[in-house]
Design a protein around this nucleic acid. Structure first.
Lengths: 146, 146
DNA sequence: AACTAAATGCAACAAAATTGCAAGTATAAC
DNA sequence: GTTATACTTGCAATTTTGTTGCATTTAGTT
């Protein structure tokens, strides 16, 4: 189904209206993917007020339309699993590029077993990775050899 | 080795002094474990200034004495792997209790393989879990049956 | 005990997020 | 298509969180 239709339905099911600010923020998330609230605010400035961006995101989170992702101790926002498949992120410590990492069945199993040991029932999990991307590794080798 | 000795060494190796504020913050981290910076500030108020708590934490992070942990989109602080063994956290969505989950060799392997697929070399990772603790699950069952 | 560089506390500032309220607008009923 | 109205928005003000500059204090050395 077209993503915007899913959005409309999620809003209507909650008795919430489909407004300009909500559409603007949604489209920015579609277009630019993972981004900070500051980026959302700046990209929508002139059209949508700062405060409204905060409020739209708050609603979207409550309705499961967006999720927060921690990247280097700041959070960023991206469309939820209704719109994108379950994944995690790896950040390059040299160039700060962030790449999605697909969730893998084995990972799920291992995490389930980890949780078992605690007596908790498991509802959700987030994994964040850091490392160095291929480009940066190659560049640093080149520089060293010169 | 006694933990405070490790702290002294870490500071001295860096040419940093062993001061009252640093000892106070360190002992709070030992005594209360994982906590927010607001909790650290409040627990040390009267003895240590707000700003100094920030500065001590900044230094401790740089020296690898503390690490930041994301819990529910806010970070908390705890002593690093020099003082505690490598672990993650699971939070109860009902009562907000946070419990440590030991890192497991299988998890490490699965994560290593995940990273392989991206072309990144892996430096570090964080895993955060959410669920419901035994106590809360039992309580909610009791309430339903009455 | 005196010296000195490092660290602290205070005040001021900057950034990020929240709240209250009057004005605007999306939806449903006519 | 108009109208009514409850939901939303934008603005201003405030709160919370984190940072900076500088005079004073203090840890560690001589």
């Amino acid at each position: 189904m077209k993503q915007e239709k899913l959005l409309r339905r999620a809003l209507e099911d909650n008795g919430s209206r489909v407004t300009q600010p909500r559409l603007v923020v949604f489209r920015l998330l579609q277009e630019h993917g993972l981004q900070s609230i500051a980026e959302l605010i700046s990209r929508s400035s002139g059209t949508v007020d700062r405060v409204s961006v905060y409020r739209v995101i708050e609603l979207f989170e409550k309705l499961g339309i967006v999720r927060r992702v921690t990247i280097g101790w700041k959070y960023k926002l991206e469309l939820s699993e209704i719109f994108l498949d379950h994944h995690h992120h790896i950040t390059c410590l040299s160039c700060n590029k962030v790449v999605a990492v697909k969730e893998d069945e084995k990972l799920e199993k291992v995490i389930d077993r980890l949780a078992d040991g605690t007596g908790f029932s498991l509802s959700s999990h987030q994994l964040e990775l850091q490392g160095h991307c291929k480009t940066c590794r190659e560049r640093s080798t080149t520089l060293q050899s010169s």
